[in-house]
Design a protein around this nucleic acid. Structure first.
Lengths: 157, 157
DNA sequence: GTCCTTTAGTTGATCGTTCAATAAGATCAC
DNA sequence: GTGATCTTATTGAACGATCAACTAAAGGAC
């Protein structure tokens, strides 16, 4: 849409449009590239990989479903489906929570941890190749800070 | 994964991990927020909206399928499915290409253009609310430049 | 302690995406 | 101009994500 079509809207300026499209285009391509690498080399989606990472860094390599969903920015429903599929593949297990009858703990299995160890080098290399190494250190820090600002505003959404 | 687990990998430093996660987290939340707004207020996915935008800005409000796929960063297959659904809803039409027997032109219908006009204000407002207005002008320009650099490296992927 | 609300998690149907296979027109070597 | 190859676009199956409906436990009011 171009300015003036409908009154009362603060349209993006030409420059803002260029920037927004640069962002949108690059972010989609980046996610595609990272997803494709993980899928091909390790038979994991980016979401599944993030689940493995979060669990591996959590005490006892386990986490409550709802907390895990929040960390990987998934809906509860989506996480349930993802975890069920990962459980069928032996990457995680579920056990009911001792102190909360509603709760479920998702636990990383040794096989899941091993899978993460296999997948991590290739994934990190891809993150470097397509993102980190495209920018110098200060630029990458800036990107992180700017996106952190954006993410903060979207904290609970 | 933390440094040292497997030899020969240039792991991300602690700071790089923080930045990468800030990026990943914010970009997912941003896309979710924009997609949800469009879906709820205009019954369009972000992909469908982008198709409408590209067509509306193209001469004759039409574009070859493959060019359109490239512009919106979709696979040909995905675009075919998306366009078929949009055609069923009367937003676009397909006509075979005069000068290339293989080609198909995707044409924006008046109804499709009207739908874009309806959807645009809300979408632009959301892009402002969640992204543009979170940063000052220089910061947003910087973000655009950095992401452009990242996107350039992913040009054909 | 009963009722009401909130929170945690799951389920199944529906819809969108991906992938491999296919068809057919263009292009190029020769 | 014939055959090999590349490009364009589509198809259908398999898979993943979304959404609304649901179960069950926890928390709070009184």
């Amino acid at each position: 849409m171009t300015s003036g079509t409908i009154a009362g809207t603060r349209w993006l300026t030409a420059e803002e449009q260029v920037r927004w499209r640069a962002y949108l285009n690059a972010s989609v391509r980046l996610m595609n590239a990272l997803g494709r690498q993980l899928e091909q080399d390790s038979d994991l989606s980016l979401s599944e990989y993030e689940v493995l990472v979060q669990l591996s860094e959590s005490p006892g390599r386990m986490m409550r479903m709802s907390q895990l969903a929040a960390e990987v920015v998934n809906s509860r429903s989506r996480l349930t489906h993802t975890v069920r599929r990962m459980e069928e593949r032996g990457l995680v297990e579920r056990q009911s929570c001792a102190d909360d009858g509603r709760g479920v703990n998702c636990v990383l299995t040794p096989a899941g941890f091993a899978r993460l160890e296999e997948a991590a080098p290739g994934h990190v290399a891809a993150v470097r190749e397509h993102l980190v190494d495209r920018l110098d250190d200060e630029q990458f820090r800036t990107l992180g800070e700017l996106m952190d600002k954006v993410g903060e505003a979207l904290r609970d959404s």
